[in-house]
């Protein structure tokens, strides 16, 4: 029986609710309706009183979670779209993220962000917010790229004693399937070599992992062996695994779906350049979305974000550099 990335998120929440009375879900339309994407389908009925519809008030949703977490609960906040989390940004970065450091009080909230682009999503339903949140001290930022990670990392996120921003990619919701839910997982904070290789490294995460893997598959036809590293967590960032891969290949391309200024790809390149410069046989490269809002029409969107084709182009350049 195949299970999708979205179903894995639903199943993780069902398990969390079943296993831990401290867990509850608060978000817009998450109750009887089951969420805009159905990530909480049936949970309100299965767990009465623990899956609550909120007003359209992202700031208050996060504020409520913070208060509940202070009192020992493990709230999960669903933002309907990652883009709308900016309306709750202040509570996340200034309140939740500073709580432990200021007051020595743990703030174990999990904020689920349905992120990333889909055809027709447009500028306000497509954004990748991980770099924004990773910038602030006091937050953990997770970007699962597989069905297995969507499940196990969400469970791990809720068990973490700190605020977690959980970036789940909408494009993967239905596209990605696995045979079964995982029974074991890599720890949070560890990157994974998704495909071994020796000629060059692609470091990426979330939906771009699958574009990168398609690129590696294509280039393998020409005899190139491309290593693909899935970051899984952008904060903390597993620099050791990245440097280990670059040590094997000598060439680095970092791919992200977010906007190009700063961000995760820049951070990875900066760390490799400062800590592993001598490992590089060529200047490291980055590939990001374009520096415009995310366009609505697929003809534009398909060029705005990196795709396997764009990654192949960049990789050919890197291999011959």
């Amino acid at each position: 029986m195949a299970i999708t990335y979205l179903e894995a998120i639903r199943e993780a929440q069902a398990k969390l609710l079943a296993d831990d009375p401290r867990v509850f879900i608060y978000g817009q339309d998450v109750g009887n309706f089951g969420g805009a994407f159905k990530a909480t389908k049936g949970l309100a009925k299965e767990f009465p009183g623990r899956v609550l519809d909120s007003p359209i008030s992202e700031d208050a949703q996060v504020g409520l979670a913070i208060g509940a977490a202070i009192e020992g609960m493990r709230p999960i906040i669903e933002m309907q779209f990652a883009d709308f989390s900016t309306c709750g940004l202040n509570q996340i970065i200034n309140h939740a993220a500073t709580m432990f450091w200021r007051t020595n009080t743990k703030c174990p909230i999990t904020v689920r962000l349905p992120c990333g682009g889909t055809a027709g999503g447009g500028p306000f339903h497509s954004q990748s917010m991980e770099a924004l949140y990773a910038h602030y001290p006091g937050l953990i930022v997770l970007n699962p790229a597989t069905v297995e990670d969507a499940y196990s990392m969400l469970i791990a996120a809720v068990h973490i004693d700190d605020p977690v921003v959980f970036c789940e990619h909408k494009y993967l919701y239905y596209h990605l399937k696995a045979d079964a839910l995982p029974t074991e997982a890599l720890p949070i904070g560890k990157a994974r070599v998704a495909r071994p290789g020796r000629d060059a490294t692609i470091v990426t995460y979330s939906a771009m992992l699958h574009e990168a893997l398609a690129c590696a598959e294509e280039l393998a036809k020409d005899g190139w062996q491309i290593e693909v590293v899935d970051l899984r967590s952008v904060k903390p960032l597993d620099t050791d695994t990245i440097l280990g891969s670059v040590a094997r290949t000598g060439r680095l391309l970092v791919v992200g779906e977010a906007f190009p200024w700063g961000g995760v790809t820049a951070e990875v390149v900066a760390r490799v350049a400062t800590e592993g410069f001598s490992l590089l046989d060529a200047p490291p490269m980055r590939l990001n979305a374009k520096d415009t809002p995310v366009p609505y029409h697929p003809n534009l969107w398909g060029t705005h974000r990196p795709t396997a084709r764009a990654i192949i182009g960049a990789m050919r350049e890197l291999l011959h550099a």
């Binding site: 700031d59 504020g63 409520l64 208060g67 509940a68 202070i70 609960m73 509570q91 007051t103 009080t105």
Partner: peptide, 27 residues
Amino acid sequence: GKPREGYYAMISHLGVMVSTVSGGLVA
């Protein structure tokens, strides 16, 4: 403040404690 003792520590951004205290009450 000492949040675990019910004495929450304000941040400078005004208004946020309304929902935060509410969250404590929900808990």
